[in-house]
Structures are given as C-alpha cells and as structure tokens.
C-alpha cells in the first residue's frame, strides 16, 4: 500500500530509520482504518435501531459519513476497504445474502461516483459529492430490487428515491463538512487539497 500520509503530522515525530518509519505509519493507518470501520458499523447499527422511515428504501445513510471522511483523510483505496469491510461485517451480524447484495451494489456504485468526483469538488464542496453518492447508491439499490423481485414496476420508487437521495445526501454532506473541520485540527491530510 502506498503511503499517503504526511509523516510528521501523523506520527508527531520524525524517525530517522526509514524502515521503522514505514512500519509505524502503516500501523497507524491500519489502526485508523480499523477504528473508522468500527465507527461506521456503529453508525449502521444505530441507524437500524432508529424508528424506521415508513417509506421503503429510504434511509439517512450515516455510514456514508465515514466513507467520505476516510476518503479525504486516508485516501480512496483505504476508504474502499473500509466500506467493503463494513458491508461484510454488517451482513454477517445482521443480514442475508440479499441484504448483502443490496448494500454492496449500492455501496460500490456510490463509492465509484464519489471517488471520481471528490477531487473535482474538494473538501469545501463535499456535499455535492455526497449527494451524487446518495443518488448512485439509491440507483444501485433500485437496480438490485428490480433484479431480485423481477418486477420492473418497482421502478415506480425512482422519484421518491431521487428526492430522498438529494435530501439525505445534502444532510450527510453538511455533517461531513462539519466533521472534517473539527478533524482538521487533529489530522492534517494532504490527500485531498482544497480547491479554491
């Protein structure tokens, strides 16, 4: 795995030995990834425990906060690993093959569009990336729903899913912006630079 960290800011010290330095950074990165994975699992569980929204397929998608934050702080590859790990673990704990299929298709769809656009919009306009991710997530889930039920009539959900994606994506994007502003004092990343 390539190193995307600014050494000093992560380790807080400079170590002469490059080999040790590398290992140290790798360890820190793996620890950060593990923490972010568990945070996103917790968010996923909390969301599942909240009273459900009476419209099928509509949810806020708290886990996407973690995907966005890790994409900015750690990098895209790490964010993808965190996403996949979260989906696998969530499905192992509470889910079926089908819910796994729903999550992985939606998640990968959302991730691809976010990875493509995050450099374009940068940190400041991350809400746009978030909305695009939400739209693609819902599009992926709708595709799985049509495929799984074999009923094209399910596509009647499309306008509702689009509307909910725009609303929830904006909310999640704003939360992410606030979170990154708070985090930036703790972790300084050079992975995604602000575009002015």
């Amino acid at each position: 795995m390539t190193l995307k960290f600014e050494t000093e800011t992560v380790t807080g010290m400079t170590i002469k030995n490059t080999e040790r330095k590398k290992n140290n950074i790798n360890l820190k990165k793996y620890a950060a990834m593990a923490i972010l994975t568990s945070v996103s699992l917790i968010l996923f569980t909390v969301e599942a425990a909240l009273p459900p929204i009476p419209i099928q397929g509509v949810k806020i998608g708290f886990s996407n906060i973690v995907t966005l934050v890790s994409m900015v702080v750690l990098g895209k590859r790490e964010a993808f690993l965190i996403l996949v790990m979260r989906i696998i673990l969530a499905s192992v704990f509470a889910g079926s093959i089908l819910s796994f299929l729903f999550s992985i298709v939606g998640g990968v769809m959302a991730f691809s569009i976010m990875a493509l656009t995050i450099n374009v919009f940068g940190r400041k306009k991350i809400w746009i990336t978030s909305v695009l991710g939400a739209i693609f997530h819902n599009a992926g889930q709708l595709a799985v729903a049509i495929f799984a039920t074999g009923t094209p009539a399910v596509s009647i959900y499309a306008p509702i899913l689009l509307l909910s994606a725009i609303v929830t994506g904006t909310i999640i994007g704003m939360v992410t912006t606030a979170l990154l502003a708070g985090l930036s004092t703790a972790v300084k990343s050079k992975t995604i630079r602000d575009k002015k």
Partner: peptide
C-alpha cells in the same frame, strides 16, 4: 404509489 415489496 408505493407497492409493498417483501424482497426476502
């Protein structure tokens, strides 16, 4: 408007 769909 919203059909009930039980995917499982």
């Amino acid at each position: 408007l919203l059909p009930i769909v039980c995917v499982p």
